[in-house]
Design a protein around this nucleic acid. Sequence first.
DNA 1: GCCATTCTGTGCGATAGCGCACAGAGCGCA
DNA 2: TGCGCTCTGTGCGCTATCGCACAGAATGGC
Lengths: 243, 243
Amino acid sequence: MLILANNPNQNHLLAALPTEEFERLAAHLELVPMQIGKMLYEPNEQLQHAYFPTTCIVSLHYVMESGASAETAGVGNEGIVGVSLFMGGNTTSSSAVVQTAGHAYRLERRLLKQEFDRAGTLQRLLLRYTQALMTQMTQTSVCNRHHSVEQQLCRWLLLTLDRLPTNELIMTQELVASMLGVRREGITEAAGNLQREGYINYRRGHISVLSRSGLEAHTCECYAIVKKEMNRLLSDVQYRQNS
Amino acid sequence: MLILANNPNQNHLLAALPTEEFERLAAHLELVPMQIGKMLYEPNEQLQHAYFPTTCIVSLHYVMESGASAETAGVGNEGIVGVSLFMGGNTTSSSAVVQTAGHAYRLERRLLKQEFDRAGTLQRLLLRYTQALMTQMTQTSVCNRHHSVEQQLCRWLLLTLDRLPTNELIMTQELVASMLGVRREGITEAAGNLQREGYINYRRGHISVLSRSGLEAHTCECYAIVKKEMNRLLSDVQYRQNS
DNA sequence: GCCATTCTGTGCGATAGCGCACAGAGCGCA
DNA sequence: TGCGCTCTGTGCGCTATCGCACAGAATGGC
């Protein structure tokens, strides 16, 4: 069995570029290791690079004056971190932090903007992806308002799992709590319930999902909406042959 | 004193277009009255028009299976309703409803897309505006998670007020509650407190703001963040002389 | 000017989630 | 192998918000 080396095509957006566009960017894509907790940008800080995750997951979240925080969306190999670079704002009020360690390819801001302005496939993909991101934000917002911690945990686990090759997350309950913006004890309780039901299994810093369907049955509608929109918006993507 | 007739320049985005771009669109802009409660589009419905509000306010909100709902962002004369038309998705999972009666100019979807694809000022404005919209969504999400009903009410009143020429909202508590996704009684209580403090005054279906600064002092940081980002992203806009 | 309708005020018990405190367990490192 | 740190489990009182029920007030239409 072949262990795949790092490859830009592990990122869906890059993989969907036509050869010509891809080759213009390829030489400038820089593979970077993403350690957990690394902050890609702070609020109102001029971004220097966009990141195309391959094996890592990045959390877009907002930290309040009080120190409390909440995730508004996650980005994995389906997307890009740094949409404000091509949307025109260059900065955002939220920050981006690595939630699951792995790798990403980064691209200098000027080059991204340049290629975006050619109004080719990359532009089309990035705009569609941004809309999918807005759907995620919408659902996070609604979910925060109306759903229980347990439902939100299920949603979050499923979304995270969809971005990973394994069924195991390296993640403490404390960290999950800060993503969802709830108490750590709330996660202990909710995770305990899910474990008792046999849907997950966890130990110190590791969460394994045993039954996706169990989680799907326990979560709210929000997960399905996000998933569906993500598929719809990025489904007509043609992948290059990457032989 | 002159009563201003309806005019596309009352919408900031339209007012910021250079003459050439504006004139290409002007003939196709259709003034439409917007009655309160009118649904501009339902979830997953193909949008036919984009709307540029002049005197109305439109609420983007999500209605859940249970019937519960929550606003994720509002759009007034600073923006456009229907960003998914140029972002590429054409539909969204949320709906758009008129929250304050007034007028808007609408533009056929094909024409909007056409002008957007010219990659001129309109494109730049729309993308920046969309980023501001994302900031609104982010703050709504965080606010839902961490702030009290009273703080959220203050935020919502201020944001709404900023889009109106008067200091009076035509709005029942029931309606405000459905925007914030809370109980009507919660609004009664919060509004009662604000009235007792002398910041607002209300009667059946009308809310007058007496002291902006009072509300600003009672609201959370979310209001200022949204306001600041909106200004930043749309501040370098040059308005045409509209003589 | 009256009536029906809609909106607002209030009270009540129920409950989800919070904040804090502390105990115990697991893991990594020496 | 053992120590110490970090993570997880649990208990307890507190608060904000919910859900429901109903009364009273305001308004618009006739």
